[in-house]
Write a protein that binds this DNA or RNA. Structure first.
Lengths: 177, 177
DNA sequence: CCGATACATTTAACATGTTAATCATAATCC
DNA sequence: GGATTATGATTAACATGTTAAATGTATCGG
């Protein structure tokens, strides 16, 4: 067991690292960091199970979104699965090559493409869903169903208020509130 | 202004997408999704400002972490900035090429590398910090300081409990693996 | 009609996330 | 002390995030 030198926790060190003169919030307590760490802690639970079935997190999001609708256009799918166009484009190409989804150009508007899940895709979902649900249930148990609902509520409000903020900032003059 | 077709919010749609027969939680209400969207809403506020200074979100995290310590080893930096080794390795290479940081091998243990921020790096931080702080303040105003603190608390608890869960799951039912 | 414009999707280019493998150096065991 | 094992950091390979540009189609104004 190699010793970790004297680099203990900041604040408890032997005067090894005095704080710098640039004043900023404590880094580890920033909101983006908190959200990132929380999300990573959650995803860490799911990834192994998905990996067993050869799926990434984003591919799983797409399949689930597709399973909830008969067909869906690419733009709408991007919105629902919260993916940017380029990412979605690449993933759809891959999922189609694996015959997990199907694509058809919309006749009435040749720019658009409709996507749907295939029978094979549905089978895959049925294979993954149980363990996925079990993990989610375990998380809910661990954290408390009530607290979880409350957390999601707060996250939703945050998202909503920040979306409103963008418009306000854009025009610089605070008209909205 | 372009209209977004008739694709309004899910739940208010014109009966266009009947639910499939695969039973799963409503996708948009999953915890990972909530966390992802909230974080994206937050980062969307910061990215333009960082971009103006030629910094990505992760590069900014690293510089901030470095500004808080005289020197820090790569492994510890990865922990603090919440980056994986490979990502950190690439970013440090880039930041060093831009003379924003400095690296030296630790004499007592040639495997380790100490990293520190350069004078130029400190200048950059001083240039970016004000707008960054202003944005954070605006977010805090928008959401409420109290609510924000509460949210961070809940996120911290979530992270903590899930970390504990991993150990529990590992040795539980299945014969290890 | 036709040229300008808008739109849906994809491609391009670069940065990061993620896991596995590599490489060099240290610590350990015999 | 030399083989073995562990550790810190990097590299490799592939998937995604992110912004800009390209492509093909539709719509609109004249």
């Amino acid at each position: 067991m190699a010793e970790k030198k004297s680099s203990g926790n900041p604040g408890s060190g032997p005067a090894g690292a005095p704080p710098r003169r640039v004043p900023m919030r404590d880094f580890s307590r920033s909101l983006p960091m908190s959200l990132l760490r929380a999300r990573e802690a959650v995803m860490r639970q799911f990834r192994p199970s998905l990996r067993l079935h050869g799926l990434t997190e984003q591919q799983w999001r797409i399949l689930r979104a597709l399973a909830a609708a008969e067909t869906i256009e690419v733009t709408e799918l991007a919105r629902v699965a919260f993916l940017l166009g380029p990412s979605l484009s690449r993933i759809l190409r891959d999922l189609e090559a694996r015959h997990l989804i199907e694509r058809r150009v919309v006749r009435a508007d040749q720019r658009r493409t409709e996507v749907s899940i295939s029978a094979k895709g549905l089978e895959l979902i049925k294979a993954v869903a149980p363990s996925s649900e079990a993990i989610y249930a375990a998380i809910t148990r661990r954290y408390g169903a009530r607290k979880l609902a409350e957390l999601q509520d707060m996250l939703g409000v945050l998202e909503h208020r920040l979306a409103a903020m963008e418009l306000t900032e854009e025009g610089s003059a605070e008209a909205d509130q």
